[in-house]
């Protein structure tokens, strides 16, 4: 029996084949599954990002819904405005889903995102996170992980700071719903989209979508990397309601070191063991914190203790 996190999916497609995504595109898989759930219930707002291209350059159209493009930093506000405008013209039902990359979420979009979250705009904000500006050829974003290469953090000066924790920022806004998801767990992803659709107010989905072109990974490993990110707990699957009720959706059974995830990506090729250790330590600390918030036992607490000892 295939894992329940695989789920069962509608046969109907709202992403059309022939789209412009690169071979092995993670964001394409994510959007395909998001739209299987949202179907004709939502319109889509896209700020500058890979999806500006994937959704079709004129005259092509790859999505079977209304898609509105908007300037890079403006997605959250534009989305809120569309929702408000729809209500004003007598359509309270159509949902608005913003589809922003990590740049449009973590970096240039953060102010508008925070504003919309604080106002509890009635929209779903989806960040498909490929951890750098991939559409323009792999420039660093604040979602780029520690130790990763990009064209603006070239070796040996690879990114020296950890990835911004956008979920904590969102949780701090006490939004009705915020969740992480990734393409290797499409059932989990779908159910989170469904849960988001069922709620009102500001809903945030942080979806890790590997980018083989940017990450320097084999194009067939997109889903595998997504899975390894979860299994190594670099990207745990969890959700939080109202900034207080935390739930971890997938508890890895076995300890898998982060290197299993890092090793097949060229962007991490300059990492030294001490840097890998630093990443692992970060994972252990954040996992401990997450387990604590979710009220579950950390079955890997020995690993955390190991790092604490190592630091002495």
């Amino acid at each position: 029996m295939i894992n329940t996190l695989m789920g069962s999916f509608s046969q109907e497609e709202f992403l059309l084949s022939g789209h412009n995504a690169c071979p092995g595109c993670g964001p394409a898989i994510a959007v395909r599954h998001i739209m299987k759930v949202t179907a004709s219930r939502a319109v889509i707002v896209i700020p500058a990002s890979c999806w500006s291209i994937i959704s079709g350059v004129v005259p092509l159209r790859a999505l079977e819904t209304v898609v509105m493009h908007c300037p890079f930093p403006s997605a959250a506000a534009t989305g809120g405005g569309i929702k408000k405008g729809l209500e004003a013209v007598g359509d309270p039902h159509t949902q608005v889903l913003v589809l922003a990359g990590d740049g449009g979420t973590f970096d240039i979009g953060l102010q508008g995102l925070s504003g919309a979250a604080e106002r509890n705009e009635d929209i779903i904000f989806v960040c498909y996170d490929n951890e750098a500006y991939m559409n323009t050829g792999m420039q660093k974003s604040s979602a780029s992980p520690y130790g990763s290469y990009s064209t603006t953090t070239p070796a040996p000066k690879v990114k020296g700071n950890p990835k911004k924790d956008i979920m904590k920022i969102m949780a701090a806004h006490q939004v009705p719903y915020a969740a992480t998801a990734t393409i290797a767990f499409p059932g989990d992803l779908s159910s989170k989209v469904e849960r988001a659709l069922e709620r009102k107010g500001f809903r945030f989905l942080h979806i890790l979508t590997p980018c083989p072109q940017g990450w320097g990974s084999p194009i067939d490993k997109t889903v595998e990397l997504s899975r390894l990110a979860v299994l190594t707990r670099l990207f745990p699957l969890w959700e939080v309601e109202g900034g207080v009720n935390y739930r971890i959706n997938f508890l890895p059974e076995e300890y898998l070191p982060v290197n299993e995830y890092l090793k097949s990506q060229k962007r991490f090729s300059s990492l030294e063991q001490s840097q890998v250790d630093f990443i692992q330590e970060n994972v252990e600390r954040q996992w401990e914190e997450l387990c604590h918030k979710a009220g579950v036992a950390n079955r890997f607490s020995a690993a955390l203790a190991g790092h604490k000892n190592g630091r002495k």
Binding site: V45, M68, C70, P71, P73, S74, A75, A76, A77, T78, G79, G80, G81, I82, K83, K84, G85, L86, A88, V89, D91, V96, Q111, G112, G115, A116
Partner: peptide, 14 residues
């Protein structure tokens, strides 16, 4: 910035 973005959205919607 968000004010005008918001209106762009609302105006898109009609």
């Amino acid at each position: 910035y968000s004010a005008m973005s918001y209106l762009i959205g609302a105006s898109y919607a009609g």
